[in-house]
Design a protein around this nucleic acid. Structure first.
Lengths: 290, 290
DNA sequence: TGATTTATCTGACTTTAGTCAGGTAAATTG
DNA sequence: CAATTTACCTGACTAAAGTCAGATAAATCA
């Protein structure tokens, strides 16, 4: 374990110096870091002054002064909030957009340089996803979305690709009993995605049926977010939705090529039952009474 | 590529906030960050004031004041350098050791917490090694060492383990023509390791013989540091040593289970020759004239 | 409607970080 | 050995970050 920690700390030193170098390049724009951070927060779409303050952890007095200095530079414009005149809204002026673009360029440039100088950039990005997901595990947001929405499709695409990779016979969603979107939306069912700092890292569908039970479908966790207990949380979220909808019996099926999934359902208190559908893919069938 | 960059920047945000949180926990000790950093540098064995100054990038005036404040807290003691009375040496007092231990604990605690809360900590550490190596690629140090030294053995152990994993018949160093240490040390030969922030990430041996040629042996790059051009640099270092020793002909052998190595030698201007030894493992034989 | 809460602003302040121009004493050079 | 260089120290300064106690105006509550 001691050696593990020294590896962790070597990583810490490396990223600390990288973060410091980026800060230093930001200072090259002739503006204190605090002001640069506020400008960038606004550029990234945070218009609500209170939200920026919370995000950057700034004192209200300090925030006020930083906004003033950006205003004097004519990089931002402040206005009263539309429904609450106390809450101020900040937007970039054209000059602010230009300045923000330069900061973006500085950031992107470092990213591109590192990625393009590596012979295996995808491996590097996978490693980054893994670490970012582990560091961000206590900032997950669970959102109920339309299963046809952009984020949902991003999850499902990766889910299908993984099934196709791992199932002996491959996987073609058209051959499977693909639930239609309405069955996974209120009032019949629900569909959840988990976002980790904006990146979709997991999903789960609750498919209502008229057969006296509902099904859990499309439970998927991104490889980068595995081992963090996300599946359990997604499952809890989905079961809660089922209870709200008055559902008493949950069922699901899975494949023998996914042993960790089979294991997970057993550990989570599901009981194995007989085949309850004629979908060609599943080998295992589970049930849980709510 | 745009999506790659957004993944990179998600990683950046995650580690920035992690770095910030650690700094914040350091501030909880009631000492400004600058002083804490100096104390920690001394605790980690940097006694030379000039070295600390270079490492932390501090102005001499600021450094002097930070040392003074730590001295007033009776956490460190300064003395004149043994051979140069201008260079000051800093060491921790017992109270300083105690305070340093607390900072260490804060750092290690975060590391342990993250690692132990993850189901696959080794995957996380591999990811960290990969990223730390990529970020630290312009701070490699090449050192000529005794092939029996600790760092050399660390490299060789991993090298043998990988051969054993990848070669069809496995690999037992005792069955191979294991060069004795003297043949890879001056004046016969040389042995190099590459350190990346203290971690050995690669090695290469130059084995002198009395047969009119010298051999490149044990060229290895850690998986975390592959794709960064390290093998080429190690090779250049080794060839330079060979030239210094007046060697005119270099030879090496390798195995068909290591296609990237075979590829590398071809690309680096080596010419394939007939088998020149009776070692059971190699399938390919190369030569290069200096 | 008057009292209270909330979001932001202002002024006065402290601490930390960082810069710069000399100064001192040890070491090195010609 | 005198002149110069080097490593560190000191004092005087500036800028940035952060804190805190009111002030103000909009929103909400009783």
């Amino acid at each position: 374990m001691l050696n593990d920690i020294s590896r962790f700390r070597r990583f810490s030193r490396a990223v600390t110096s990288e973060v410091g170098a980026l800060d230093h390049s930001f200072l090259g724009r002739g503006r204190p870091l605090g002001a640069a951070r506020v400008l960038n927060a606004i550029g990234h779409g945070r218009t609500d002054v209170a939200a920026i303050r919370a995000y950057l952890g700034l004192d209200s007095g300090l925030m006020s002064r930083l906004l003033r200095s950006l205003e004097e530079e004519e990089l931002i414009e402040l206005s009263a909030g539309p429904d609450d005149g106390r809450k101020r809204q900040a937007v970039l002026t054209p000059a602010g957009e230009a300045e923000f673009a330069i900061y973006e360029h500085l950031s992107n440039e470092r990213a591109e340089k590192l990625l393009s100088s590596h012979a295996h950039p995808q491996a590097l990005l996978d490693a980054m996803d893994l670490i970012a997901s582990a560091l961000g595990r206590d900032r997950w947001s669970f959102e109920e979305v339309d299963p046809r929405s952009e984020v949902a499709l991003q999850c499902l695409e990766q889910y299908y690709a993984e099934l196709n990779r791992r199932l002996e016979a491959g996987f073609d969603v058209k051959l499977s009993a693909d639930p239609d979107a309405e069955s996974m939306m209120r009032p019949k069912g629900a569909f959840f995605v988990t976002l980790s700092d904006g990146m979709p890292v997991g999903c789960a569908g609750l498919k209502g049926t008229d057969k006296g039970y509902a099904e859990i479908k499309r439970l998927w966790v991104s490889p980068a977010a595995r081992g963090l207990g996300l599946a359990r949380k997604l499952m809890a979220e989905t079961e809660e939705a089922a209870r709200q909808l008055g559902i008493k019996v949950l069922r699901l099926d899975t494949n023998k090529a996914l042993p960790e999934a089979v294991n997970f359902y057993r550990k989570e208190g599901w009981t194995e039952i007989d085949r309850f559908n004629d979908d060609p893919y599943p080998d295992y069938f589970f049930e849980k009474l709510l």
